[in-house]
Simulated assay, not measured.
Amino acid sequence: MSELSGIQIQNLKKDFGTKTVLKDFSLQIPEGSFTSLVGPSGCGKSTVLRLIAGLENATAGELKNSQKNHFGFVFQDANLLPWKTVLENVLLPFEISPELKGISKNEIKSRALDALNKVNLQDSADLFPHQLSGGMKMRVSIARALVTKPKLLLMDEPFAALDEFTRYQMQLQMRDLWQSEGLTVLFVTHSLSEAVFISERVVLMAKSGGGIVLDQKLNLPEQRQEELRTSPEFNSIIKELSEGLRR
């Protein structure tokens, strides 16, 4: 596999015991792109993220990630420590990552406050998780992922548990962050409409063996507005992707 920027996956296989979750899975994610992985439960979407992050090892195949030392991971659950404030939760990576130990306390706090500002939570730094709404908790989780200044953001169904209104707000905010921070984003979701609205490319995965059913670049405006969700072009893409999933 040639050396290119971004993520390159070639003929990847992942077994859990006797069960094969991914087989002959190949995908390229260019730097600076926003790609969504969509598919039924058990197709290996989350496993792809965990393999890229180094949380799992592949059974076979090749995976190269030019941003492997500069990534953040946002899980479906915000995973905030209830006894720590919002600011302290955002500071957690500096406590547990040896490579971040040499940064001064002033720089660390400045980064944390800046990350909170990016998700519009600068006035909530001293609150505790039980004082936050579901959407606010998820924004803290995103701020915690941003505090290390990653180049790559891996997101595993981060908005799945949110109400529809909050989910729509978070999608818009995530698009803004992707553009303003120059991130590479790989976003896992079960929702076709979420994938189409939030990303610039959608990859559909099959249930058995995690094969790719469809890999589609979206011909939609770079700046997304709420009106897009009810537009003919948006619904046409949803229909085409739905047919792809059925196939």
Rank of each mutant, 00 (worst) to 15 (best):
I96F: 04
P30E: 08
L51M: 09
N106G: 15
S66G: 04
S46R: 00
N89V: 04
S97P: 05
K101Y: 11
S41H: 07
P30T: 10
A58Q: 04
Q67F: 02
G42H: 12
V74R: 08
S36M: 08
Q76C: 09
L87K: 06
P82R: 06
K64G: 12
P98L: 06
Q76K: 07
F94V: 07
A53L: 05
T35L: 10
Q67W: 03
N106M: 15
L49A: 14
P40Y: 04
E99A: 15
K84F: 04
G72N: 06
V74E: 08
F34V: 06
L49G: 10
T85S: 11
I103P: 00
A78L: 07
P40W: 05
L51F: 03
L49F: 01
P40T: 04
K101S: 09
N65C: 12
V48T: 03
G32H: 02
V90A: 02
H70E: 15
V38C: 13
L87I: 12
I96E: 11
S110M: 13
E31Q: 13
S104Q: 09
G102M: 11
V48K: 00
P30I: 04
L63F: 03
G72W: 09
G42L: 03
L100I: 05
A78Q: 00
P93A: 01
V90G: 00
K68C: 10
W83D: 07
A60Y: 01
V74T: 09
E56P: 01
L49R: 07
L81W: 09
K109E: 15
L80Y: 02
P40H: 12
K45L: 04
V74C: 08
I103V: 14
H70L: 14
L37W: 03
T47W: 01
V38H: 01
D77F: 11
A78W: 02
K68Q: 10
S41W: 03
P82G: 13
P40V: 00
G44A: 09
K109N: 13
H70F: 09
H70M: 14
R50M: 08
L51H: 07
S36C: 07
G32W: 02
A58K: 06
G44Y: 00
Q67I: 12
E88R: 08
P98D: 13
T47D: 06
S110K: 15
I108K: 12
